[in-house]
Design a protein around this nucleic acid. Structure first.
Lengths: 129, 129
DNA sequence: ACCGTATTAAACCTTTTGGTTAAGTAACCG
DNA sequence: CGGTTACTTAACCAAAAGGTTTAATACGGT
């Protein structure tokens, strides 16, 4: 357990069963048995998945007689959204960048082609600890 | 190797070293040595991290003499953003939902209380509280 | 007090992950 | 050519992940 919140969240989301559980919880609370129903998996396996989701803060569990109702806790998802938002420019500008690339091809196709990495060679050589 | 694209993406993101690599690539292409520089980790370890990122489609690698320049590939990040967007309502409406809950408590506290779990089994049991 | 239902815990197994060191490949450079 | 630089592959290891089966716990109904 990384004790790094975002890593725990991503790790919890890196499993289709757990994401399906979250999707189901998006339409309301559910008991463990209800959540387990779509899967061909033993109950303890589901129980473990729920524990992973709980440790990541993605769900909270209550007590209701012998049932343990689960509900979605959106805070870590908000954090994920915030993290990925930093990269939005990269997919929104990708078409522009394709255009840039095509334009560069056109203007450079006869010149010799020494574009992007030549300054890095020198930098690497200078650095010598 | 899940062959599930989104799972691979989340798994790749569930490591602080790999996220730091992506952050660095956000400011431009970089060689493996440059990417490795901030970490107290062997080169093969970095190489493995890059392979994970590459298999997830989060980076692409070129060839430039003896360097292997890496660049960010935003498509999977876009997919993540799309996935998490489905849950936006849950963190934006959380205050409203608290209000809903309080209102529900007020109006339901004398009626019998079969709201959330009634479809499960026998609704006739009375909750004590 | 007992039985059934819901759920978790324990013990175990296999595969994956994340790191290591040591060796291999590939390109440049003098 | 031979050496240096940049990087990957191989072999190995410990720990974590994801599943199993069996057993334990908690509660409600009769």
């Amino acid at each position: 357990m990384t004790s790094d919140h975002l890593s725990n969240t991503f790790a919890a989301l890196a499993d289709p069963t757990r994401r399906a559980i979250l999707a189901k919880l998006a339409s309301g609370e559910a008991s463990v048995t209800q959540l387990a129903e779509p899967f061909e998996m033993s109950m303890p396996a589901i129980s473990k998945h729920l524990k992973v989701l709980e440790r990541a803060g993605l769900i909270a569990r209550g007590r209701e007689a012998q049932w343990r109702p689960c509900r979605l806790e959106p805070a870590p998802l908000k954090q994920v959204a915030g993290w990925v938002e930093h990269y939005r420019q990269f997919w929104e500008q990708s078409f522009d960048r394709l255009e840039d690339y095509l334009r560069e091809l056109k203007t450079n196709e006869s010149r010799n082609h020494e574009s992007r990495f030549k300054e890095r060679k020198n930098a690497g050589k200078q650095r010598k600890k």
